[in-house]
Design a protein around this nucleic acid. Structure first.
Length: 423
RNA sequence: GGAGGGGUUCCCGAGUGGCCAAAGGGAACAGAUUGUAAAUCUGUCGCGAAAGCUUCGGUGGUUCGAAUCCACCUCCCUCCA
């Protein structure tokens, strides 16, 4: 039995593998090369890609060589797997830009350098763009049966469902990804592909193609889809997707995302998203069972994952804001603390007058979408100004009332803040 | 190329001339309760203080009145070739 696979199993991180026993043997008998693909569908990855990224890292720590494939070519096509509808094509230059930013992000998780199992980032545009359409159809396409392809669960809803449909472009996606595996096997002796469970069809396609083109036996491993106990979608909040790019989701917002993890999910997420051992996590869970009130799991999860993604500094800034806003008294904050909060990525807005109505302030930032909503929030008692509840919709906030004549901190609801800076 | 079916407010989806800012569900938001949970209960959920205004793929038309009828355009789907 292979220790790494056993650990992944214990963490619940394995959905399916091909040739289970042979895979154990394969990984135990030497340093292997594996890859995972990341298609550029935006200028940043989001936390949905965190599980595969961390698994690449786990493999590397176990002595294997990870390849992060950025889909410069496949990103131009669009993966139809389990997607309800055909997607819009993005232009070459946009995708090329995305490839660059995603390359950088991916690089933060795995070690490069001189060691034998140093990571590499590859781009499938490098080999796919070299292939002409005749070779594609003769050398790759000939190995695929359309009969088999339309049977794949991943495209079923597009084929069966009334009102859906799939273009030849997206239908061919599987062939490109399959060819990636064969090409990486040939060039880099890559023998394992990992991915989310939605990639199973594409991965097995690649395994078959590699056997046919290269006469090589290669393996696949998929991770389960990350789900939440309440059935809502993982990775989204009221303010949208949680990105890995700190410019798109601040370390503070990122930290907050994890801190609000449901009790029912937190230990599972600790196993998925941290490098704490399963034994350590079991201990945390055991301790939490015996304390009344707030469990410690969410805090540990938030700290571990924020450190992994944003480093010690990002974690420190996230914790500073969290500490200031959620533990007790705002009046304890010094002027430099307040200045630091804005620096650390707490949403902040400049105000150019000496006074403004509460409604104006709320609508001038993300806290309220319209005057109507702003009034409703005030009426509901959802608005706090510098820690004091405001219930008068006509209230005026002045510079003179500001903390240090400069800062007004407004809270809407349980955990949404905006700092106003008077000029 | 031919025939047919569609595009409704964040999503799904009802609505075929006035009672429609538009059913229902989901998501979301606020309050109570709590642990910055869950569950539950209450309220909100186009804009506007209100009068009212803007919306049902687009443009134009019929009508006292249109999401609903007509014309053209556009995008999507299904089947046939």
């Amino acid at each position: 039995m292979n220790a790494l696979i056993e650990d992944l199993k214990a963490r619940g991180l394995i959905a399916q593998t091909t040739a289970d026993e042979e895979l154990h043997e394969h990984l135990s008998s030497g340093s292997r090369t594996l890859y995972c693909g990341f298609d550029p569908t935006a200028d940043s990855l989001h936390i949905g890609s965190l599980v595969p990224l961390l698994i690449l890292k786990r493999f590397q720590e176990a002595g294997h060589k990870p390849l992060a494939l950025v889909g410069g070519a496949t990103g131009l096509i669009g993966d139809p797997s389990f997607k309800a509808a055909e997607r819009k094509l993005n232009s070459d230059d946009i995708v090329a830009n995305w490839v660059d930013s995603i390359k950088k992000q991916v690089s933060a998780f795995i070690e490069f350098g001189e060691q034998d199992n140093a990571a590499e980032v590859v781009n499938n545009l490098d080999w796919i763009s070299k292939m002409d359409s005749i070779s594609f159809l003769r050398d790759v396409g000939k190995h695929f049966s359309v009969n088999a392809m339309i049977q794949k669960e991943s495209v079923k809803q597009r084929i069966d469902r009334e009102g859906a449909g799939i273009s030849f472009t997206e239908f061919s996606y599987m062939l490109l990804q399959s060819y990636d595996f064969a090409a990486l096997n040939k060039e880099k002796n890559c023998t394992l592909q990992i991915g989310g469970s939605d990639q199973w069809g594409n991965i097995t396609g690649g395994i078959d193609l590699t056997r046919r083109m290269n006469q090589e036996k290669v393996f696949g491993l998929t991770m389960p889809l990350v789900t939440k106990a309440d059935g809502t979608k993982f990775g989204k909040t009221e303010s949208g997707t949680i990105w890995l790019d700190p410019a798109k989701t601040s370390p503070y917002a990122f930290f907050q995302f994890w801190i609000t993890t449901l009790d029912a999910d937190v230990y599972k997420f600790l196993r998925y998203f941290t490098f704490l051992t399963v034994e350590q996590i079991a201990e945390i869970e055991e301790t939490d069972k015996n304390i009344k009130g707030r469990p410690q799991g969410q805090g540990i999860l938030a700290r571990e994952v924020t450190r992994l993604v944003h480093g010690e500094e990002g974690l420190a800034s996230a914790e500073r804001i969290t500490e200031a806003l959620f533990s007790g008294n705002l009046s304890n904050l010094s002027e430099s603390d307040l200045a630091q909060l804005a620096q650390d990525g707490l949403p902040a807005t400049d105000v150019n007058n000496d006074s403004a109505s509460i409604v104006e302030l709320l609508t001038s930032c993300e806290l309220a979408a319209s005057n109507k909503m702003a009034r409703e929030f005030v009426n509901n008692g959802a608005v706090m100004v510098n820690g004091e509840k405001i219930t008068d919709t006509e209230a005026t906030i002045t510079k003179a009332d500001a903390l240090f004549s400069r800062y007004t901190l407004i809270k809407r609801g349980k955990r949404l803040f905006n700092l106003f800076i008077w000029k």
